[in-house]
Computed example of a mutant assay.
Amino acid sequence: TAPHTLCVFEYIYFARPDSIIEGTCVHEARLQAGRFLAQEHPVEADVVIGAPDSGLDAALGYAQESGIPYGVGFIKNKYVGRTFIQGSQAQRESSVRIKLNAISSTVKGKRVVLVDDSIVRGTTSARTIRLLREAGASEVHYRISAPPFVHPCYFGTDIPDEKDLIATGHTVEEINQMVGSDTLGYLSIEHVQQLAIHSKCGFCTGCFTGQYPVAPPTETMDIVYDKPLSQSNSKKKL
C-alpha cells in the first residue's frame, strides 16, 4: 500500500522540536532547513537570530552553515499564543506587540539575519523586523525556512482563503518591501522536500505548490459553521 501523507508544515512549524515524526527528528529537520537556507541565500552579516520558537533551530542551522555567529535576539512572552490564527487583524497586531521583545545588546549596530519559519499574512513579520530596527539593527536580512505560502491549507494550518496570504499575488521583492526587510529569501520547494528524507510517509506541500494529495474539501470549516443547522449536510437524522 502507498505510504500515508503528512503535512510538511508539521516539521517546519507546528511540532515540538524534540518530536520524532515518522522516523525523523523535528529538531534535525529544522537545522537542515537552516543549512539549506544559508546555501541558497547567503549574505554578509554579523549575527544570526531566530524568531521564537520554531525559527530558532533553523537559525542555528543557518549559523552553522554560514559561519556567522548565532545570537539570542528576542525574549518571548510565553502567554501569547499563535498570532496568525487569531480571529481579527486587530487581535493579531495587539498580540504581536506584547509577544516579543528585542535584545538590543545582540543586534544594536549589527547586520542581522533573522530566520523565521513562514510568512502567512505578514503582520508578525513586519512587527518583528520593526522591533529589530528600533533595537538598533543596521540591516535585517529575512530568511524563511519554507517556500512562499501561496495556496490554502485544508489539512493542518487551516487557512482556507488565498486573500489572507501575503505571498499570493506578490513577488518576493514586493513582500520584502511590505515587511520592511533589507533582503528576503525563502527555502526552495526542492529543499523543503529533503527535510525528512528518511521518514516513512509522503508529504503534502499543497500550501506551497497547489498540488494536494487528495481533493480539497468543497466546504471549509468556517463555511460549515456559518450555515444554519437545518442546511448542514452533516446534520444527523434522529
Rank of each mutant, 00 (worst) to 15 (best):
G122V: 04
L229N: 05
I49L: 11
Y13I: 14
D116Q: 06
E174H: 01
K200Q: 03
F74D: 08
A126P: 00
D53M: 10
A38N: 09
I85L: 14
Q194E: 13
T218F: 06
Y186A: 03
G50H: 11
H41T: 05
G61Q: 08
F9H: 06
I103Y: 10
H141M: 02
D57Y: 10
E65A: 15
V172F: 02
E22C: 01
T123P: 08
N77Q: 12
S145C: 09
A38Q: 11
Q211Y: 02
L187W: 01
K76D: 14
Q193H: 02
T5N: 14
F84G: 08
I223D: 02
R111I: 04
P3F: 11
Y11I: 00
H191N: 15
V214N: 13
P42F: 05
S66C: 12
D57K: 07
T183Y: 02
D46M: 09
V179S: 03
L56F: 07
F36P: 05
H4F: 13
H170R: 09
P148W: 05
N233T: 14
A196M: 00
F203M: 00
E93C: 11
S94M: 13
N101K: 14
I144A: 09
V140C: 00
A29H: 09
I21G: 03
A58K: 08
E190H: 09
G50R: 08
S104T: 11
F9Y: 12
G50N: 05
T209P: 00
L31A: 08
G185R: 00
E173K: 05
E65K: 15
I159R: 07
L132M: 03
F208H: 06
Q193K: 15
G50K: 09
G210H: 02
L114Y: 03
I189W: 05
E173D: 10
K99A: 13
G81C: 11
P152E: 03
T205Q: 08
V47I: 15
A102E: 10
E44W: 04
E190I: 08
T171M: 01
G34T: 01
S138F: 00
Y13F: 01
F74A: 09
Q32G: 00
S54P: 11
T220E: 03
L60E: 15
C7P: 07
P216S: 01
G34Q: 11
